[in-house]
């Protein structure tokens, strides 16, 4: 059992293991997102208040979920890297960061577009959008900090510390922004918090969320493989792999 984990935590072992795992997640992501898009766009009923603009929920909410989850995943990876010195964890964190920033951006964009028919403006300082914007800045900070160091190891450790500090702050930021929002804009219409949705509305949402998570796992597995090859390119097993291939 421990031997298995030990092997998995080594870049070489993970490289072999993830090759077998990632196709399943790619397939799941394609099927789930495909089904969710068709269902959400064409078959789910229109909302009685917002009409068809409600369908944006099927991309906005999964993107927002992923934006937050990826930051937490990066912080966990950073913790594992700092405490147990497992390099693989840092490689995974490196691989995830751009996707997380991208998801945050898409959540912001779809929220802003959704705001036009709902609030009548492209940007409203809504609690969710505001904390999503701050999360976006946190992502940029982590990516920029990692790139600013010349030594890869110090860049990795600095990014890990910042991610962990950020993840402690995210709930505080969320709470304070919500508090600030209710203080300044009492009882406005929030786009995503609503009375219980009927099944035919939330089932496609669930499928989309699962699809986005599969996509995240698939991307992370595949991209970590690239990071492994890049960082271990001087190691013997990578050189042998490249030699066989060419």
């Amino acid at each position: 059992m421990w031997a298995f984990f030990h092997k998995l935590a080594s870049p070489k072992g993970f490289y072999a293991f993830s090759a077998r795992l990632s196709p399943w997640f790619w397939a799941a992501a394609a099927v789930l997102i495909g089904a969710g898009v068709v269902w959400g766009l064409a078959f789910a009923p229109a909302d009685y208040q917002q009409g068809n603009s409600f369908r944006i929920i099927y991309v906005h909410v999964p993107a927002a979920f992923l934006a937050q989850s990826i930051f937490v995943a990066m912080a966990l990876a950073g913790l594992v890297f700092m405490v147990w010195k497992i390099k693989l964890a840092d490689m995974a964190a490196t691989a995830m960061a751009p996707l997380g920033a991208g998801m945050t951006f898409v959540a912001l964009l779809s929220g802003a577009v959704w705001g036009v028919p709902t609030w009548g403006t492209w940007w409203q300082w809504d609690a969710r959008l505001t904390s999503m914007l701050i999360l976006f800045f946190l992502y940029i900070g982590v990516i920029a900090l990692r790139g600013a160091f010349d030594g890869r190891d110090s860049g990795s450790r600095a990014a890990s510390v910042l991610t962990m500090v950020g993840v402690i702050n995210i709930p505080i930021i969320k709470y304070s922004v919500e508090w600030w929002y209710t203080l300044h804009q009492p009882a406005t219409f929030s786009i995503t918090s609503r009375p219980a949705m009927p099944v035919e509305m939330w089932l496609p949402l669930l499928i989309m969320v699962l699809g986005f998570y599969s996509f995240f796992i698939a991307v992370t597995l595949t991209r970590t493989r690239s990071v492994i090859l890049h960082r271990e390119s001087a190691k013997r097993w990578v050189r042998e792999l490249a030699g066989e291939d060419g």
């Binding site: 800045f137 940029i140 600013a148 922004v177």
Partner: peptide, 27 residues
């Protein structure tokens, strides 16, 4: 502390720190 070793850490420092300042500003 994170940026002290970097030659041009000034702008990066504000990028790292300002998002974390939001709750303090709000309250």
């Amino acid at each position: 502390a994170l940026t002290v070793g970097l030659s041009r850490g000034g702008v990066l420092l504000s990028l790292l720190v300002l998002p974390l300042y939001v709750p303090v500003l709000i309250f």
